[in-house]
Write a protein that binds this DNA or RNA. Structure first.
Lengths: 214, 214
DNA sequence: CTCTTTATCTCGTCT
DNA sequence: AGACGAGGTAAAGAG
């Protein structure tokens, strides 16, 4: 049978997936969404995430079986009964515009380190997204003169957790390995909030918590 | 207007979101999926992920505006033109059954540490999901007698990365802080694959990489 | 291409 | 309710 380019299908079906993992889905009523980009997703009665999904798949409908295939994955949908099948045309590819991102918080600290870190801006060069060891550090403040420590800042959009501190530690490891005794080092974790264990971990590591908000 | 409990709506609409972030979505054709659990998601022509979404929202349709609200979030959908509106009934809540998980790999090592770690099983007590500091370590092998090191294993389903090594380090920190000099400590990172930087990081930390496969 | 990080992560699980 | 980690994470961004 011929399938539209994009469609929403509500059907009684059972589903098998094999690829990065394997899964089976018992016979039941599911919503199946096929998009113009070739992606397909199978939804159950709850949760945002689909039960099964595949990006950029080629699909065929042969008898009562819809087969979606990509290089290393396959979804096999045995359709028992079609409740609804509607083709979707002229679907918009509009991109969403987001505000209030981590970058926004980061930039606040970059432009006003005096308020947030209590350091003299003229004494430091602020480098956002400084790449060390192939990984970008949120902000590194390089001292222009002697007698000042290098400052390393890790920013989170919502909250500082224990993991945030370990992430900062990873960066500080890399920086001190690279620059050795050329600098002293000070670490900061910044976010609107900090968890209890995050605070404890920051204290143990000697990192300062910097509250920053939108 | 009255909305069905669960539905799929294809409509020309524009969408605003405000909550954990903010976003706007220009007028266009979108697919809107409302599930029996109260979740709602708005899909564009591509990608698996919805453009906007909300779990457990109460919704109302007033004039041309669908309003979805939860505690701290709101989605406002101005509907310009309804292309399709289909109610979805008797939707199945079936759960998916997954195989080939991290736990599977972990158990392989637990039952046969001789093959994977080269240690004598009779000399150790293997504790999967050993909780230290409130966090479960994949496997800890406690030596039964003296003269053997404690073995700590971090397992990944796909590949060992640099982060895997730092995760292991976090656990080993916690274990050595807890047990002090009672043991020596050896770390292992296990997965079907390891990235280049993961291998480098493991070597620098003195962790052994353990290939393990399904 | 590969590798790494982000995310309105989502979702389960445990305190 | 908050915290924490896994995920078939997906998707974006950098090199």
């Amino acid at each position: 049978m011929e399938l539209p380019n994009a469609f929403f299908l509500f059907a009684r079906a059972e589903v098998e997936y094999d690829g990065r993992a394997s899964s089976t889905l018992a016979l039941g009523n599911y919503g199946i969404l096929r998009k113009p980009d070739g992606s397909i997703q199978i939804h159950g009665a709850n949760l945002i995430r689909p039960l099964n999904y595949m990006g950029k798949a080629s699909i065929s409908w042969d008898g009562d079986v819809i087969l979606a295939r990509s290089k290393k994955e396959v979804i096999r949908i045995r359709v028992d009964c079609v409740h609804h099948l509607i083709p979707l045309e002229e679907w918009s590819e509009t991109k969403i515009r987001l505000i209030r991102t981590e970058a926004e918080l980061r930039d606040k600290i970059v432009v006003d380190p005096e308020s947030y870190l209590g350091i003299d801006p003229s004494q430091f060069e602020a480098v956002p997204e400084f790449v060390i060891d192939g990984e970008p550090v949120d902000i590194v403040f390089f001292p222009r003169g002697d007698g000042e420590c290098l400052r390393v800042v890790e920013v989170k959009r919502t909250q500082v957790t224990k993991n945030t501190c370990y992430q900062l530690r990873k960066y500080m490891d890399a920086l001190s390995k690279h620059y050795k005794e050329r600098y002293g080092y000070l670490g900061y974790v910044a976010a609107p909030k900090i968890t209890k264990s995050g605070r404890k971990c920051a204290e143990e590591h000697g990192y300062a918590y910097v509250p920053v908000d939108f």
